[in-house]
Design a protein around this nucleic acid. Structure first.
Lengths: 414, 414
DNA sequence: CGACTTTATAAAGCCCCTTTCCTAACCCCT
DNA sequence: AGGGGTTAGGAAAGGGGCTTTATAAAGTCG
């Protein structure tokens, strides 16, 4: 709420690093042009990042008369970031270098019974240990671990306030993790993780207002407003999945009726398919992934049942996304998470059409609807980005107070 | 998007003046405590406002040992602000002093046929002339005129991009108004006007995130996010009224089906009533105001039809507001505009219950739902506030370059 | 009437960004 | 090979903002 000139610095630091990661190697001039900052500011910021060894000088640009531009690039080996995506049935952990390339990956499956925090924590700890070992990184180089856990999260205290899938209430997840993991930890939820991933590296880069729609088992939206994440007063903004789209409609697992998630979440889609064609071969009961994959394949081959099932789904999805367009008037709506990735461009095309029908023309005209361009798990990437932000933030902290060395007893007044 | 230290100054200037208006008279100390700024900063800001004659020193607080605190108060006669609320059937204009008291008011009715921009403009010009004459204000004291017009507005160029009620497309309203009105003009739409009114003077004061729900003939939401208005990329965020609440539901005047507005706008409520009891005496066909007033009276007296009609309406309204709570996770939801004002506290109580049923428990627990505390037309007040903001903004502009007075030819080096 | 307290203003310091100036580095040309 | 011309990058100066500290001003109380 209270803004200070330091916030400006932090934002600029983010912006410069973001730009370097996006276009490595690059020159100070390019950075200044891209960020709108003055050369002097860019130079100091670049200096800072060089001091931190997060970037390095990598040579010079060819010049056609005049001093050649010095080039800087991400110092990939300057540190490592770990992103943890905890979901209902799995834990994905990825270890990134500073260029946000995946250096190592570890997945753990969780059996349906495993719902105790301790069980989840041990999976996470194991996977984190694994990626560090795989990558052969010395611990000191890990700048931080970002952890995404579904549900409502208090990121300040690191408490999972409520996780619907395991019925957790106020689990002090960060404290539990701290016992097993020695690196700085950052906790948030997948909605915000994927939003920040898009903001730094994906389709929301450089956009002021964007909505990242997560289509997975659960459904929700990450909100980028005014160039930053919108969290809401209790860090639970973006619960689009439990927005009502059909009053008194289908029962949702949240206990209410007619939620968006009940129609466009993975199991909602399965239900749509079942209602359309109860014994379609596309349907793999009890296996969301397989069913969605089958639908995707069906879309590709033009299987009429698949096409119709998706069309039915998009009827709801389009209306839901149109609501977001009307409410937020974003520059871009990004479709993310595994269902969106699986169904791909055909889905997006359908969604565009449906949104055009439902949204107001002006806001619709102002917004693009795109698929997430992030090739890996956006939640892991976003979680790692939280760690990166954390590492950059602490740069801004006041440098250790300069201790005026106590002068030794010297001559008394003569 | 680009933040500079000047924005901080502007925000602080707003904050201090806001606080003075809210608690006049007040001391610098109180202001510092309320705003979180240092005394020195408050003192300079107060000095600035004193120089502008927007506030005055009005004496001292009694002291119990120590220098007494100087008190400042709004200089009500330091200027006048005009708010113009253009709606489908009327133009309301109010003239405010700097304490935002209404000094004069003028209403013009517009007959259904009058839909040409020129006609509307002439009504506005007449009403503005009228309030200035009534208040006996010299023109120079009018700091600005804020104009609210329904639909989508480009505030930078002053163009009404689209006004559904008159089917306007890209009407250069501000240019037309400039020909008749000599004061600085500010254009925006009623959603944002009422939101800014709540932000400065109403239930959203001091809140970081608030949603102002407008329940009138039209329906929409003003969004206060991160302490400021959220406009979206084309200044049309907040179109909650045309969000889908019942897929394939009632036809809305926007041409789509199942919009929130079709159920909870004034004519939607009338339709709810008609469906419930087609020949209720509460129903005044063709007269929204009378019908809503009758319903309000019925609520007071416990008329079962009125109670049921409102309950039916709240079924939709509650779900719609719950969607806002889930999506934005605001601190407060403010119910505003004439329908909300007319139905009053009984409506709010029903809405609270309904939202509790529809929203997720955590976000719901974090948000209050209240009636707008603004006693007059919030849209006029908000529009005037735009003018006030405009006047304060221009303070920040670079002061006229200090011309170093050319020294007259003096003695040459002796 | 002096001591103590509290307020208000002035001064100094820090943070941030930008503009300006100057040197460094490189190309090309003679 | 050694000057121009040109561009990059850093250092210094300047401007805007906020805060802390010092100082002056204005009371009360003993």
């Amino acid at each position: 709420m209270k803004r200070t000139s330091r916030d400006i610095r932090t934002a600029n630091r983010y912006e410069v690093l973001r730009q370097i990661i996006a276009a490595s190697p690059t020159s100070r001039q390019e950075l200044a042009a891209a960020t709108g900052l003055s050369l002097a500011t860019v130079a100091t910021l670049v200096g800072e990042l060089l001091d931190l060894r997060m970037i390095t000088e990598v040579g010079f640009e060819d010049s056609a008369g005049g001093r050649p531009r010095g080039l800087v690039a991400v110092n990939a080996s300057g540190g490592a970031l770990i992103g943890v995506d905890i979901a209902e049935t799995y834990v994905h952990v990825e270890l990134f270098d500073l260029a946000l390339n995946v250096l190592a990956r570890a997945d753990e499956d969780m059996r349906p019974g495993e719902s105790l925090p301790e069980q989840v924590v041990s999976h996470v700890a194991a996977a984190v240990g694994s990626v560090v070992a795989q990558a052969g990184i010395e611990g000191a180089r890990v700048l931080g671990v970002g952890v995404s856990v579904p549900g409502q999260v208090d990121r300040a205290t690191g408490v999972s306030e409520y996780a619907p899938n395991w019925n957790w209430h106020d689990v002090p997840l960060l404290d539990l993790l701290t016992e097993h993991i020695a690196y700085p930890l950052y906790l948030d939820n997948p909605l915000r993780a994927s939003a920040v991933a898009e903001l730094w590296f994906g389709a929301a880069r450089g956009r002021g207002d964007a909505v990242v729609v997560n289509l997975g088992t659960g459904v929700g939206a990450g909100l980028v407003l005014g160039g930053g994440l919108h969290r809401g007063v209790s860090n639970s903004a973006g619960e689009w999945g439990h927005t009502t789209i059909v009053l008194d409609g289908r029962l949702c697992r949240c206990g209410k009726h007619g939620c968006v998630e009940a129609y466009v979440g993975a199991s909602g889609i399965m239900l749509n398919l079942r209602e359309l064609s109860p014994d379609s071969t596309l349907l793999h009961p009890e296996d969301q992934t397989a069913t969605i994959a089958a639908l995707a394949e069906g879309l590709r081959t033009g299987d009429p049942v698949a096409v119709k099932a998706i069309r039915d789904t998009v009827k709801y999805l389009g209306a839901g996304v149109a609501d977001l367009v009307n409410l937020f008037n974003p520059e871009v709506v990004v479709l993310s998470s595994w269902v969106a990735a699986a169904l791909g461009e055909p889905l997006v095309a359908e969604v565009r059409e449906a949104v055009a029908r439902h949204a107001l023309p002006r806001p619709f005209a102002a917004t693009e609807i795109v698929l997430s361009p992030i090739p890996t798990d956006p939640v892991c990437l976003g979680a790692a980005t939280f760690a990166l932000e954390g590492a950059l933030q602490s740069v801004g902290q006041r440098n250790a107070k300069r201790t005026t060395p106590a002068r030794s007893r010297t001559a008394p007044p003569s």
